[in-house]
């Protein structure tokens, strides 16, 4: 097994669009946009790939902040951004196709923000 090198840079939200445009111009492909709750903040990671080189950039935002959409640069990014909005409640400005919270319809609004379960306690504690 060959381990893969994965670069990760944390950048400022204001530089996001510029950085993503750089990746686009170099010919990178958008692999993934993922959101993670880290304490009180959200980490949003954008992953790109070119010729099997895998690179990530990350922005860290407070929960009520809004972020610019990258769907103007990568057309297909709307699916990740809408998903992020529906599950985490991250507001994304200027998506090319905005489902307004109707892509994944859930019972609880923004379920991944504060996760809840049916039933109490761990399932099995060894």
């Amino acid at each position: 097994m060959k381990p893969e090198n994965q670069e990760l840079r944390v950048i400022d939200t204001a530089h996001l669009i510029g950085e993503v445009e750089d990746f686009r111009n170099k010919g990178y492909r958008l692999v993934n946009v993922s959101c993670t709750r880290a304490g009180e903040e959200f980490e949003i990671s954008y992953s790109f790939e070119l010729d099997l080189r895998f690179e990530n950039i990350r922005i860290i935002i407070p929960p009520d902040a809004d972020i610019p959409s990258i769907s103007g640069i990568y057309w297909g990014a709307f699916i990740y951004e809408n998903e992020m909005h529906d599950l985490f409640g991250v507001h994304v400005r200027g998506m090319n196709i905005d489902f307004k919270g109707n892509l994944i319809r859930t019972t609880v609004p923004y379920p991944f923000r504060n996760t809840s379960f049916k039933g109490e306690g761990p399932c099995q504690d060894r």
Binding site: N102, R105, Q124
Partner: peptide
């Protein structure tokens, strides 16, 4: 206009409920 969610279970959240080998 695609709309999804008919099979959404939210299984990623179970990671906080099950230990990593499980």
């Amino acid at each position: 206009i695609p709309s999804i969610g008919y099979v959404h279970r939210g299984l990623e959240t179970l990671v906080e409920k099950r230990q990593f080998p499980e």
